[in-house]
Design a protein around this nucleic acid. Structure first.
Lengths: 218, 218
DNA sequence: GCATGTGAATGGATTCACAGCT
DNA sequence: AGCTGTGAATCCATTCACATGC
């Protein structure tokens, strides 16, 4: 057990999110032919403290060279592996409404290792059709089967709020451990089944709150 | 100046986000005819500490009754005012692709005080058409005019990454102070022009990282 | 000299625990 | 008794500052 380096363990959500952002930046730098970058340079791009960046990166092992900086491609390769996005992950979306359809056709996913295998819905009207880019809409009940058949690892909840919990439970029952939730609801989660929520309403309300404070302060 | 209570000042983003969630819960409780709720009861719903909820709510003034709890409707009314969502806010979306269109038709906005006035795009193919629910697609250059004419306060960036900065700048020039950004880019922001970013890729990568740790831990 | 990696210091946010009101 | 509101204590994240190595 001793000496078994296990980097990537005990890393906070905040750090993981930032690393994701650094990764994107490294891709841009690599595309521009830059080979080396310092924590200082990255810090300026993101308005962060350079120590923070060094700490974040150090979580994954020592990849910098003192007096020089970080090798862009080496660091990138390493982070990709550490984030587990060196291989593709299959995704299924439940809810074939406007949002689900838009997500299915969103190119940003496919370009970066996430492959949308299918949509699913309970609406007979939608079942059997497919998205503009050709992703099929299955019956809700056929989802678990599709998950098994395609080794799906991530489920996206794109249904209206009242159906969100049920969708989460169905994903969990189907064996998924990672869920991205777009419904504005607090889900009752199970241990081991991670949820990330994207809540448009919260974001808009935060902006509204900001505007209100600006108004009142004026 | 003394005694001029100004609640809602100096409240952290984290608190504001949570309050937004409480608010949604209060709406549900009210719909169910519940008149009073305790911090303890709310805490259980969200898996939070009850002291945190009391602290969060106390930021906005003292609204509980000791020995009893909080009056649901009174608290709700108050939070709605404090978040600045007691009146509608007009919104414009730049980018009439899949995502922009889906957002324009998303009912969750209209139901909660956010009114999408128009979409805008540079693509001649799209200009002049409208979303399924009838929201018109204007020329990108007509956006500032639409902002003024409709007293728009919030701008949504739904364009591909390379165009995001330019869209942000155009919003800022048009006088908007609050922007919701869906492009996976780090925007160079101006003072006073608040951005909230919704980054799908970061969320998926976080999930991927979680899955990787589960795999490695097993 | 220059930039990393990291212990120590700081700053915020969360939790504890209790005084005070109903 | 029950529950809020809040100072004190704790925990976690960020920043500082420097020893270490290229």
């Amino acid at each position: 057990m001793a000496g078994a380096r296990r980097p990537g363990t005990g890393i906070s959500d905040l750090t993981a999110k930032r690393v994701s952002v650094y990764l994107r930046c490294l891709e841009d730098l690599q595309a521009d032919g830059v080979t080396t970058v310092s924590s200082q340079a990255l810090a300026e791009k993101f308005g962060l403290n350079s120590a923070q960046i060094r700490k974040d990166l150090a979580c994954f092992g020592e990849f910098g060279t003192r007096g020089v900086g970080y090798n862009v491609s080496r660091l990138k390769e390493h982070l990709v592996r550490e984030l587990g996005i060196d291989r593709g992950r299959n995704v299924v979306i439940v809810g074939a409404g406007n949002l689900g359809m838009a997500l299915a056709d969103y190119q940003g996913f496919n370009e970066h290792g996430f492959h949308i295998v299918a949509l699913a819905d309970i609406d007979d009207e939608k079942i059997g059709r497919s998205s503009r880019s050709g992703i099929p809409v299955l019956a809700f009940d056929a989802m678990p089967q599709a998950v098994r058949a395609n080794s799906v690892e991530i489920g996206i909840v794109a249904v209206p709020s009242p159906a969100a919990q049920q969708t989460y439970d169905a994903f969990a029952d189907a064996g998924l451990n990672a869920i991205l939730n777009f419904a504005p609801t607090q889900l009752r989660t199970r241990p081991g089944v991670k949820v990330k929520s994207v809540d448009l309403r919260i974001n808009l309300e935060s902006l509204s709150f900001y505007l209100k404070n600006v108004e009142d302060g004026a």
